[in-house]
């Protein structure tokens, strides 16, 4: 059974429907990727799964339980963590405090402290800068921090919304190396990306979304890469 199943989800901003009946699945233990041009509704879907936006219709099943419309903190408690678009670190808080905020619902202090150490091992730059305000970090470091903060809640499912956005090519490679590592350690990842080339290298499955609808789904080999990339950047409407 898939860990996450989105069924016929409609999410709207006022009268404008950004998601017009989206259905997709993320299998346990995979990296599943969502590709699509700007404005297709990728962020809207992530925000809907995480509970920040309420769907007008449809179901969001996590391990078979419908969580659609629940409050974000309740969804975190069920095991979903989102690394949001543009990272959204707490800029005036220290790196360490950002991590502690990520573990807000956990009462097991000793285990949280262990996880902080684990994050510092995985992201040595964060350790160096643990007492620094997060707003002073570089874009790449802030992205690492956003990922580490999300992991601090020990999620069953990690959602990532364009983690490579605005980063230098070397940093993008590092981010994808980390994504592959997290996957190898057993985390299920649902990844939104503009960088289709990189995403298809790590993903086991992908979906294409265009204008609020899933228009294609398959394994990375299912569609010629240049065709995927063309549709992911431009959408099929521009053919």
């Amino acid at each position: 059974m898939s860990l996450l199943a989105v069924e016929d989800v409609v999410t709207a901003y006022g009268k404008i429907e950004a998601l017009k009946g989206v259905s997709l699945e993320v299998a346990e233990g995979t990296i599943t990727c969502l590709l699509g041009p700007n404005g297709a509704g990728k962020t809207t879907l992530m925000m809907t799964i995480a509970g920040i936006l309420k769907p007008r219709r449809g179901r969001v099943l996590l391990g078979g339980t419908d969580i659609a419309g629940q409050a974000p903190h309740a969804i975190v408690a069920r095991g979903i963590a989102l690394v949001p678009e543009n990272r959204l670190v707490f800029p005036a808080m220290t790196v360490l405090e950002n991590l502690q905020a990520g573990a807000f619902q956990r009462r097991d202090k000793a285990a949280v402290a262990e996880d902080v150490e684990r994050m510092f091992t995985r992201f040595p730059r964060l350790k160096e800068r643990h007492a620094q305000q997060a707003g002073t970090l570089s874009g790449g470091e802030q992205q690492m921090l956003a990922v580490a903060r999300a992991l601090m809640s020990r999620p069953r499912l990690l959602l990532m919304d364009e983690p490579s956005l605005g980063l230098a090519p070397l940093v993008v490679e590092e981010i994808f190396r980390i994504i592959a590592e997290l996957h190898r350690d057993g985390t299920t990842i649902f990844l939104v990306e503009q960088n289709a080339h990189m995403a298809l290298k790590v993903a086991q499955h992908f979906f294409l979304i265009e204008q609020g609808k899933v228009t294609f789904s398959g394994d990375p080999g299912a569609l010629a890469e240049d065709e995927v990339i063309r549709r992911a950047y431009l959408g099929s409407a521009q053919q």
Binding site: A50, G51, I52, A71, P72, H73, V76, A77, A81, L82, P84, L88, V89, F90, P91, A92, M93, E97, Q100, A101, G102, F104, Q105, R149, A150, S153
Partner: peptide, 17 residues
């Protein structure tokens, strides 16, 4: 910690649980 998180970045505070 929760108060400061909400002051700085309410969406991220929600996402942090």
């Amino acid at each position: 910690l929760a108060v400061r998180a909400v002051i700085e970045q309410p969406t991220a505070a929600s996402l942090a649980g």
